[in-house]
Nucleic acid binder design. Sequence first.
DNA 1: GTGGTCTAGACCACG
DNA 2: GTGGTCTAGACCACG
Lengths: 120, 120, 120, 120
Amino acid sequence: MININPQSRIPIYEQMRKSIIELIIKGILKEHEQLPSIRSLAKDLSINPNTIAKAYQSLERDGIIYSTAGRGSFVSELNKNIVKEYVLMDFDECVQEALKSGITVDELIERIKKNNEVKT
Amino acid sequence: MININPQSRIPIYEQMRKSIIELIIKGILKEHEQLPSIRSLAKDLSINPNTIAKAYQSLERDGIIYSTAGRGSFVSELNKNIVKEYVLMDFDECVQEALKSGITVDELIERIKKNNEVKT
Amino acid sequence: MININPQSRIPIYEQMRKSIIELIIKGILKEHEQLPSIRSLAKDLSINPNTIAKAYQSLERDGIIYSTAGRGSFVSELNKNIVKEYVLMDFDECVQEALKSGITVDELIERIKKNNEVKT
Amino acid sequence: MININPQSRIPIYEQMRKSIIELIIKGILKEHEQLPSIRSLAKDLSINPNTIAKAYQSLERDGIIYSTAGRGSFVSELNKNIVKEYVLMDFDECVQEALKSGITVDELIERIKKNNEVKT
DNA sequence: GTGGTCTAGACCACG
DNA sequence: GTGGTCTAGACCACG
């Protein structure tokens, strides 16, 4: 479920964060559902536990999950729209960047449609 | 013209690259027009000359500018659409990222329109 | 009566301790009154009995409650001011922390008044 | 300037964070002033660089400082009141805790005054 | 030189 | 068992 590409220039902990947000938005991870423990996930993905912890802590800071020593990590009771907002914040930056370069709204919309056809 | 924010976490050479591409797309920098020399730009922006050189090299690698030893750097004779393509490649990544998270095409289009209203 | 928030990052045994102290200060738990047994409380709150035991032991260590093997745990015959002192010790730390940061006494008093209006 | 007590139960990176905030509120660290580099501070305090980095990153996340690889870490251009707010947020929690326990506003104010006399 | 990421491994408190 | 902190040390990109 959680897909990591260790070759990518995107830090592993960022990839994990995004992957988990994705699972929550899609409803695959539900409210109060327990996430795999840091250690077990570390073993499964052959990634250092500290790296997983970093991803979990980043999600906790944003209120997307909550963790307590002795119990584990769980999905927060969040409106999905709020979680989406985190993804869309990144998207906004890209849009601003493109608009600043003199690319028109229509060109961007066109581009989204193309991307949707060839989804990776 | 070339706007650099030293507080940003985006590398300076990356900001320079984007800024120059922007000027070309908007037609402010025209074909065969000479870019400021590395040294003068370094002085003007109080930025390390190596950083400027890195930005110029990156643009040259992509054929967006060309340099001749002893004469300077110049804007290439490029179709603007090709230059735009470099900006849109970044945009595509953002779109893919959002679609992967289960965000719909309509939500993204909506978002572009909102961004266009509040352009930064 | 005893309120536990499993999502909080404050350890459960700590929350229990505070909750019981609160009940004593408010006079809801009276001197020599029996506390619920560890087992029954564990069942009611679905909390690990060891965690409850830890909270009770902490209170016993401070003389706030006393336990007799086979009979149970009871509220001590304590001056309420002494119990309050335990809460105020925590408060003192916060005050010292704030004063050290160059925040003035007046600012803190102001802040207390605001907090009192919007009590959580 | 930055005081760390390795014995304390408060994590080192938290102590550092508080210490730096304190220096900013007091005006000892000024806007855009450069903080000591992670490595040099690590050597000075004989603390692991990772721990310092954690403190700096926490401050950066809150916009109190900004860091860029290759340049260093600097105090942000922040209204001091906003920085104070971070300290006062902790204070608020303490106040709420005390009020919940049935301690009165007057008792708390009295307490602040006592603390101010015996400042640690 | 600077900060950022990651691993390996230890130790701790909590449940 | 769980997560949180810390050290030691490597490697990377940026300036």
